[in-house]
Simulated scan of single mutants.
Amino acid sequence: MKQFIALAGAMLAAAPAFAEDWDFMLTNGSGKPIKTIELAPAGTTEFKPQTVDPETRRDPIIKVGAKTTVRFDKAEKQCRYDLKATFEDGTSLVWTSANICENSYVTLKLAGGKPTITAN
């Protein structure tokens, strides 16, 4: 019996952290049309392409001022993400440390040419 309990405990400890489906509303306030959005846990470079809601976005380009729902798999206990936008002209910018757990609405902006996030 002790061996079974030890084995069960070892299996639980080795279980991967599960991701959960998550989404937020993104507004493009960057001044440039966005071609793709990628997310990475804050401070990493592990960017993964994200999907936008096909029901609200027939055009894959997120035009200036447009809103879209971004869906992704949120890692357990991970709330801060860096967002990378690749624009229609092929350039990219990264907005850092957006708190996705506390904010359902995120606006990507440029202030003096630097990426800034407004969230609520």
Rank of each mutant, 00 (worst) to 15 (best):
M1A: 15
M1Q: 11
Q3G: 10
I5N: 09
A6S: 12
A6L: 13
A6H: 11
L7K: 12
A10F: 14
A10G: 12
A10L: 14
M11L: 15
L12H: 07
A15P: 04
F18K: 07
F18Q: 10
A19R: 08
D21Q: 09
D21K: 07
D21I: 02
D23K: 03
F24A: 00
F24E: 00
L26E: 01
T27D: 02
N28H: 04
G29I: 01
S30N: 04
S30G: 05
G31D: 03
P33V: 02
I34R: 00
I34F: 01
K35V: 02
T36D: 07
T36K: 06
E38C: 06
E38Y: 03
P41H: 02
P41A: 07
A42N: 05
T45K: 05
K48N: 08
Q50L: 07
T51Y: 03
V52Q: 06
V52L: 11
D53G: 07
D53E: 10
P54L: 10
P54F: 08
P54K: 09
P54H: 04
E55L: 13
E55M: 12
R57C: 06
R58P: 02
P60F: 08
K63E: 12
K63P: 04
K63R: 08
V64Q: 09
V64R: 09
A66Y: 09
A66C: 06
T69L: 13
T69D: 05
V70C: 02
V70K: 00
R71C: 01
F72L: 04
F72D: 00
F72W: 04
D73E: 14
D73F: 07
D73Y: 05
A75E: 03
A75D: 03
E76I: 09
Q78V: 15
Q78F: 03
Q78R: 12
C79D: 01
R80K: 15
R80F: 11
D82P: 10
L83M: 14
L83H: 02
A85K: 01
T86H: 12
T86N: 14
F87E: 08
F87Y: 15
E88M: 13
E88G: 08
G90Y: 09
G90M: 13
T91V: 11
S92I: 11
L93A: 15
V94P: 04
W95C: 04
W95R: 02
T96R: 13
S97M: 09
S97G: 14
S97I: 04
S97H: 14
A98D: 06
A98Q: 09
I100E: 00
I100A: 00
C101H: 01
E102G: 01
S104L: 14
T107H: 02
T107D: 06
T107Y: 03
K109P: 00
L110Y: 08
A111S: 14
A111Q: 12
